[in-house]
Measured scan of single mutants.
Amino acid sequence: MTSCHIAEEHIQKVAIFGGTHGNELTGVFLVKHWLENGAEIQRTGLEVKPFITNPRAVKKCTRYIDCDLNRIFDLENLGKKMSEDLPYEVRRAQEINHLFGPKDSEDSYDIIFDLHNTTSNMGCTLILEDSRNNFLIQMFHYIKTSLAPLPCYVYLIEHPSLKYATTRSIAKYPVGIEVGPQPQGVLRADILDQMRKMIKHALDFIHHFNEGKEFPPCAIEVYKIIEKVDYPRDENGEIAAIIHPNLQDQDWKPLHPGDPMFLTLDGKTIPLGGDCTVYPVFVNEAAYYEKKEAFAKTTKLTLNAKSIRCCLH
């Protein structure tokens, strides 16, 4: 018999989150649709729960009410004593943790798909938090293969000092899905179709896995975050240069030392320094102006996964 890495157990509980950011409308629209008619997301033997994560922000069509829901799922915020004085999103995070967690427990949901849009030209993107997770690498390989020839990129946010504390991190297997470009507060049919297909293929993978299909060893190309880059700023902290036209919409493309990065209003080009080629992502993302992030630098690498098969009882 072929030796293989056996994944822990079959997958039982899956959640699909929309509206973690209330103005990213593809996930909101799909989740609302699936709450009314969820036939397309159901798979035999699998509990799939669509869920609106930040209903107040969705109602106002804004990213958040008090603070970013997708950055506060750490033990400090989840452990705060519940009171009306807490920011709305912290209270909501505790409610979500109660419903789908608790985080880092045996009772937490197996998989959470968190649906997002970006204003950046990132196409279909899967966000991975753990480079050693054979199950998710296999799932992402399946999704990428199923979507081809449509490109699907994998963004690895594993980093020693950049801690995200994402909404989906309460699950055993957290999956971020990011599709763009799409303006905030807008629905685009092409973007919706791409996100819908990503979810379909992900659920198909889980179904095949649960039925005992063995997935042979595989490898995927990923883009691992190195650092986030702020806009150049003046002495008052105001933005002093904008994304250069040569960099705009060039997510995932190589940016070499000396290539144009920013452009000042008086026409001066600010190039990339250093001696390493990087791959920019979230270029000129609207939501990241407040976070002082013009783009993120990534490096390209390959992740390998062992063969996996479900432990059938």
Rank of each mutant, 00 (worst) to 15 (best):
S3H: 15
I11V: 12
V14D: 02
I16S: 02
G18K: 02
H21Q: 07
E24I: 01
L25Q: 08
F29G: 06
L30Y: 03
K32Y: 06
W34Y: 11
L35C: 06
E36S: 12
G38K: 14
I41Q: 01
Q42F: 10
E47F: 06
T53Q: 04
C67L: 08
I72Q: 15
I72P: 14
L75I: 15
N77D: 14
G79D: 10
M82D: 08
S83M: 10
S83Q: 11
E84K: 14
Y88G: 08
E95T: 10
P102V: 08
P102R: 15
K103T: 15
E106C: 09
E106S: 13
S108K: 12
S108A: 13
D110Q: 14
F113E: 01
H116E: 04
H116Y: 08
T119F: 02
N121V: 03
M122A: 12
G123V: 02
L128K: 01
N134L: 06
Y142C: 02
T145D: 12
L147M: 13
L150W: 13
P151Q: 09
C152A: 10
V154Q: 01
I157R: 14
E158M: 04
P160H: 07
Y164V: 14
I177T: 01
V179N: 04
G180Y: 01
G185R: 05
I191R: 05
L192M: 15
D193R: 06
D193S: 15
Q194G: 15
M195E: 04
M195R: 00
M198P: 03
H201G: 09
L203N: 01
L203M: 12
F205I: 01
I206F: 01
H207K: 15
E211A: 09
V222W: 01
Y223I: 03
E235S: 12
N236T: 07
N236P: 02
E238A: 08
L247F: 05
Q248S: 06
Q250Y: 07
P257Q: 05
L265N: 06
G267W: 05
K268R: 14
K268W: 05
T269L: 08
I270H: 05
P271Q: 13
G274S: 09
G274P: 05
V283D: 01
Y289E: 13
E290W: 09
K292Y: 08
F295Y: 05
T299Q: 15
N304R: 09
A305N: 02
A305H: 02
S307I: 04
